[in-house]
Structure formats: C-alpha cells, structure tokens
Design a protein around this nucleic acid. Sequence first.
RNA 1: GGGCGAUUAGCUCAGCCGGUUAGAGCGCCACCUUUACACGGUGGAUGUCGGGGGUUCGAAUCCCUCAUCGCCCACCA
Length: 926
Amino acid sequence: MTDSEDISISANLTPLPDRVGVDGLEDKWRGVWDEDGTYTFHNPGERSAVYSIDTPPPTVSGHLHVGHVFSYTHTDIIARYKRMNGFEVLYPMGWDDNGLPTERRVQNYYGVRVDTSLPYDPDFKPPFEGTEGKKIQAKDQVPCSRRNFIELCERLTAQDEKLFENLWRRLGLSIDWSQTYHTIGEHPRRVAQKAFLRNLARGEAYQKDAPGLWDVTFQTAVAQAELESREYPGFYHRIAFRFEDGTPIYIETTRPELLSACVALIAHPDDERYKPYFGKMVTSPLYNVEVPILAHPAAEMDKGAGIAMCCTFGDMTDVEWWRDLHLPTRSIIQRNGRIIMDTPDWIRDAQGRERFAAIEGKTTFSARKEVVEQLQAAGDMDGEPKPTMRMTNFYEKGDKPLEIVTSRQWYLENGGTNKRLNAELIERGKELNFYPDFMRVRYENWVHGLNGDWLISRQRFFGVPFPLWYALDEHGEPDYANPLTPSEDRLPIDPSIDVPEGYSEEQRNQPNGFMAEPDIMDTWATSSLTPQIVTKWAEPGAENESFFKSTFPMDLRPQGQDIIRTWLFSTIDRADLENHCLPWANATLSGWILDPDHKKMSKSKGNVVVPNEPIEKFGADAVRYWAASARLGLDATYDEGQMKIGRRLAIKLLNATKFALAIGREDENHHVGEAATATWNPQDVTEPLDRAAMAKMAKVVYDATESLENYEHSKALEAIEDFFWQFCDDYIELVKNRAYGTAESTGSTPSPQAVKSARTTLGLGLDAFARLLAPFLPYTTEEVWSWMHAGEGSVHRAPWPKPLTYAAAAFKASPDLLAQAGQALTALRGIKSKAKVSMKTPILSVMLNVNDELHDALVPALGDIAEAARVTGRITLRKASDLMEKYARPKDGASDDAAPAETTEEETIIVSDSELGEPPAKKPKQ
RNA sequence: GGGCGAUUAGCUCAGCCGGUUAGAGCGCCACCUUUACACGGUGGAUGUCGGGGGUUCGAAUCCCUCAUCGCCCACCA
C-alpha cells in the first residue's frame, strides 16, 4: 500500500433527496443506532484502549430541567470524540433513586408511611396512586412495612427513569444503555455493602455515640457536607445569671428555651471583664441550677455580651466546649425537636421544676415563648428581645434549623480527624485534572475545612442497609462493639430480612439472639462508589475482573460544581481507601443555567424550562449546539437565539453536503437518483485555491483536536463552525463553476484536472466537516454521512480526521489564499450590493487595487474569483504602488473612492473602474 | 470575614502568558429570489473592552484598588 492510497477517502454515494431538512432525523437515526449497537461498549481487554466515563446519576424526581441537557451534552461530546479516536467508550447511565427525595414523593404519591414493626405483606395495596399535587394528610397515610415501602419506591422511580431515558435518547446521548444501573439496585447495593465491610475491617468505618447534627423533620442525622447555611430570624435575649450574693451577670442568647440545658458560662481567657470570675459559680434564672464560669478560646469577646451560655447542645461550639471542658450532658431536646417530657433531675428547685413542666413536650418555638414570659415575670431579663438575622445551619433538604442530638451513628474516615489521610486526599486533588482548573480550589478548601469524619448512617428507610447485626445478651441488650457481618459472597443482604451466620430467624430480637442494624447508609455512601459500580468492581467472575481492569481507574468524572464537596470528594475518599488511587484522571465541572434574566434556574423560582420544549421546537442538534457553545465551569444563559443558530448550521450542513455530492451526478431536473462511488485522493488536489482550502482544513482539524483533548468543546466547535461557514460562503462559491466543469462568465473551460481538484476538495471538505461536527450534531452528521458512506456504518464510529490527510492535499500551500480570495470576492460582491443589483449581474470590467503581496497571491485564483463574481470582461489586479499614482490624479466616475490615503491603509483591496452589465432577465417562478 | 468566577457592540459570547485599525453570531439597516440552502444570500452601521490608579515605547490583556453580579467556605452566644 502506498502513502497516497493510505490517506485517500473512498465514498459510496447514495441517491440524494430533492429537499432536505432536520426534522425527522432524530427518530430515523435513534432507531438505527439502537439496532446497530453503535454505542455498545465492547471490552477490548486492555485499559489503554478504553475511555471510561463516570456519568452522574441524576436524582429521578420526575422533574426535568434544561440544565440536565446542558451538562450531559458536554460529556456526550467528549464521549463521541473519544469513540471516533478509536477508544471503546464506557459511557453508562445511572439513576440516583434512593434517599429522601424519593421517600417523600412515595409518601405523597401513594399515601403510605413506614412502620418498621410491621411484617412484609406481599399483597399490600397502597391507598392512593398518583395523588401528587393533592395533599394527603399524615393521618390518612397507611402504615406499611419497610420492604413494602421500598417496593413502592422502586415502582415510582421506574416510571421516572423511563422519562429521563426518553429525554437522553432524544437528545442523542451516546450512552450504552446496557450498562445502566440505579443506586438502589442489587449491584450497587452489593458494591456499597462490600466496600463498607472492607472499611469496617480496616478500621476506617466506626460507630460512635456522640452529639451530632440532627434534622427534626426527617428525624435523621445529617453529614457536614449536607449542611446549608441560611439566614434565619431570631431575637437576642439579655438574661441575668446571679452570683451567690445576687449580683447579676448578663449573657445574651437567641435560644432562651435551652436555659435549662445550660452547663456553664464561657468567656475568652483573655477577656479582662470576666477574668476575675473564672472558676466561680453562678445560678441560672428560673431553675436555680448552679453552673461554673469557665474560659475557652473559642469564646468571642465581641459577640453578644462576650460571655456565652453553653448548653447541651445549642450549636457546634457548645459541643466543642462540652468536649474540651468535660462538662456534664443535660439534654432537653428530643429527636422530634420537642422538649423532653420528664422534668430533668438536675433541676432540684421546686419552682424551677414547675417552670420546666410548663414547657415539657413543646416545640422549641413555643417553649421559647413560654421561657421568655417566665423570665420577664421573674425579672431576670434585661429589656426587650432584640430582633436579629443570623446564619443558621439547615439540612439542605430541610426547612427547620438543625438541632444537636446525641445518638449512635456510623462514621467513615474522610480526613476530618485523620491528619495523614487529610494530607493524602489533598494530594489526590492535586493529581486530578480539573476542568476548569480553578475548581480545584473548592476541593482543597473543603478538605482543609473538614472538622469531623463522614457520618454515613441515616435513620431512614429507602436506601442501602448496613450489612450488620448485633448479638443480644441475655437481657436483650445489643453488643454494638462487636457487630456481626455476613461473608462477601452473600451480599447484598438486608439484615432485617436476612439472618447472620449461626443464627436462625426465630432468634431475631430475642434475648441471646440478634438484632438488625436498623439504619441505612446515606445516599452519598453509595454514590461515592459509582466508579466501582460501573466498572463491576464487586462482581465475581473472570469476565468481570477483566472488565474492571479495562475500565478502572476511570478517565472522566463529569459533574456539577455544587457537589464537589459531596460527590467528587467522597468518591475520591472511597477510591483512596479501597483502591489506593484516584478514581479517575479528569473531572469536568459544569456551570449553571441562567434564565434570560440571569437568574439561576430552579424549581422554587418557577423559571425552569422543560427540555422537551426546545428540542421539539429547534431539534436536538440545535439544543446541543447551544449547550456546546458554553465553556465548562461557566454559567450559561438559556438562549433560544443560540438554538436557532444551531438549527441553521445543521440545515446548512445538509444543503452544502447535498450540493457538493450532487455535482456531476444530476439529471436535467437537478435530481440525483443514482448511487455512485468516488475516491477523494489528496493527490488530486492541484489548484492553488483548493490547496489553500485544504491547508486551512489541516489547521482547523489540528486546532479542534487540540481543544477537544483539553476538554474545550466550545473552542473546538467555534473553530470548526467558522471554517465551515467560510467554506460554504467563499470556497464553494468560488469553485462551484469549476467543479461543474463550466465557465459561463470567463468563457474558458477548466481542465479535467482542475475539475477533479475542485470535486476532490469539496468531497474531502464535506467528509471532514461531517466527522468534525459529529460530536456536536450527531443526527445531522449521521444523515449527511449516510449519503457519502452508504453501508460503511455510522459516522460516530468513523475515525476522527487527521491533519495529515489535508496537509497532504494542501501540498505546502498557505491557507491565506482562501481568505484573500474571499476578500476579493467580497469586494466584487460589494460593487453589486452598493449598486443594489442582483448578484447575477455581470461585471463587464473591474480593477482591483491590492497590496504587493496580495497581488502575487491572488493571481493564481483570479480565474475562480472572476467566475464566482461573474466577471465577463476584464479583471485587472494592480499593485499598491501603482494605486498611489492613480490617486494622485483627479478622477472621474463613481464616488466610492473617497479619501484615498486612509482607505489605502484600512482596506487591502480597493475596487475601482468597475462597470456593471445588465442584470439577467428574471426567471418566472416555477 | 476568607476565597473563586464574571463584567468587551442592543443581546449571547470569543479574544486575555502585552504588540498592527478590538472580533463573531444574533438583532438592526439596505439590497438581492443567484442551477445547495427564503429554515436563504449579499453588503452595511454599531464599542470611553465595569470605574480609578500604576507598570510599559505600547494595556481589553500584567499589577493595585473600588464597584456590581453569581458562587463556595466560615459565621447559631
């Protein structure tokens, strides 16, 4: 095989449609891709031949959003690009269907709630179906077993997943649907439990009975990563504690209802105002409980009165003081957020006990009101409460401030307490390529700022259960210190159904028997393992082992910037602990979608655009074009104008390709009904203008490739698109007559070689554009590809173009000639535009005054230029030096030659002495 | 309070490791139905590059500062 055969492109040309359009292409090609398995991943058995993508599993909430199509398009462009570069692309889809959002929807949709004491009922029928929107009162909700509830969760999410899948398919995501997982599915459960058991065995997972953040609405513990600070209105209350002699000492608090939980007053050790009192005792108002005044550096002198009431627990600072100063625990808040029902024994004062009885069982809100009234009545409050806005921690999905509750929870090391691990995770962050790079800072900030390990247990129902049981002693008390674990080959298990080795079901919850760990893992504890899930880390068998080796560590994690601290970080944590490496080499971070008023689109704002609408209106390729024109990491404005441009680009590609392929094959009605073959050999490109076009193509291919290698899809698209329009507007216009083999205007018939050169360049060019645009406009490019490569498979499996092919065709020509010829053409069109006549009007004669370099460059393309501009008479090029002479003399004729000196500097081509002919007679409309 | 982005034509955005007259598309104006395309074509007008300072022969580009918008982290007495 010689070099020239190596790079020439053979085409199988089909008959062409008389009219083309983008509508209908989606249905046509989606079916073909499914049938042909165009996007199916085939394990090549070696890591270097694979590009693997850790697709974000969207929360299936039943609500779709254009933001979804935005970021997923970015990833799809990369997937398609890598596939065309010969990689087997593992591009799976996942659904995040476990967790609270699903639970809440199921409760409302079916009108049920979990009662863990109920047994599974295989014939359970929920009282409602599809009641969303209508408010089902809590009292109307029918209790059901956890397993029944989970079945309902699965039923509902299956419906939502179908909606999402339809959208993704419509959008043209090149996902291998056979690799789909959902986070509550069997395989992810196995991964989550296996990874947890290994963390446990290595001592990275542990349980602790400690104060922690607690959501009173959902009645579950929450993790640091799920916190959200929000402004919350409150009041400062100035309250008097008293020394033995009755002297008051004032503290300020926004939470007077916690007065009875006070264990100390705390001031800064350097605070001169309070230094004399450290170590002294004071008594609390209302309850007359003695508490010490202590020093701690976390107290801030300029906050409130400078001395704070430490309660167990009002906030995380209280916890810090309590821990550091070994203070007693006096909890008064229950897990449901209400005050405890029994008057605590540390209140001994009879009147104090009476006062406490008045707030028993109340919410913090009404207890606060009661306590304030009591304080005012007792004369222990100074002045009126002063309103304030303060930042308060909320669970990101909750709407009541978090309380701090002591409970037994499971934790996983994440560098929040282990310094060595923290440093290691920072280091992992440095190894990872972030796109854009500045996102790395957010990761580092977060890891540096961790103040505790990752709380992974949740007191909820729909999620992956901990694979644990506890032995019960003769009194029925669990031995938490020595959990019972299943062997890995039993996974996944549900401890509330399955039985630990060596026990029988009858022993469940019996003295000397066992009990299941009731908690489930947080959603992120499963989601943090998506790389292990999609690469089949936990699946047994040689085939899966090979799969894992070919795909892990993965290549790409695309995700939203808002979940760097959760998903990105926790995934790195898990892979570091389990696999001792980064889970992927690259992470791409998407920005937000803003509505046309630059407000972030969100459901609560009511400005969400449902993605089906623009796809319906403009077509999937057009919507993708809009998404593709935004850079990673930057917010993008929802812009239908951009979609219109995308649609226009797609239509142009269809028409230009049809036109180029039709040349020389048309019958008298311009209809192409016959199939044909063609060989586009770069060596047949012989004309200067054609070579210039190919030189430009080589550069564009090179630039686009470089941009895509750097995950800069928008830059690649811009380069390709720019040249595509230049190719259509200038190059095709300049050569179409030559390609036809006719020369109507100049009267000189082009040589067969010149004709072939033009046709070859058109073929090579449009073949290249189909490939270059394939990642962006998959439907349109597949359509045009099918016209020129019938029976050769999909463009999406065709090789990405190489600069070498076009450089060979360019034969060392400069790309500049194309631009220069384009300028000349523009100048000639300008004559007609200014004269307000049809472009068909012949130019009888014209003089083009150009600078010296341009003069020499344009000479070889003059024939094409004259032909394209319909110059029927003389076209003369004159050098700038001669031009100056001309302007030295007064001149006659047209007035568009004003200000010669300036004009000479600003324009490279000046038209003079032009003479137009008669416009041709208008043809009657057909 | 600490940090990260953004700020360029009416709109959406390029350009930013300093260097000729700051670009594109949309929109706008005028014209043209031309053997691919009216879902079209051709031509044209449009900017104190957020403000202010500085470095430099030269700044949209580098430095300082301020402002506005968005986001992240911290902030519950």
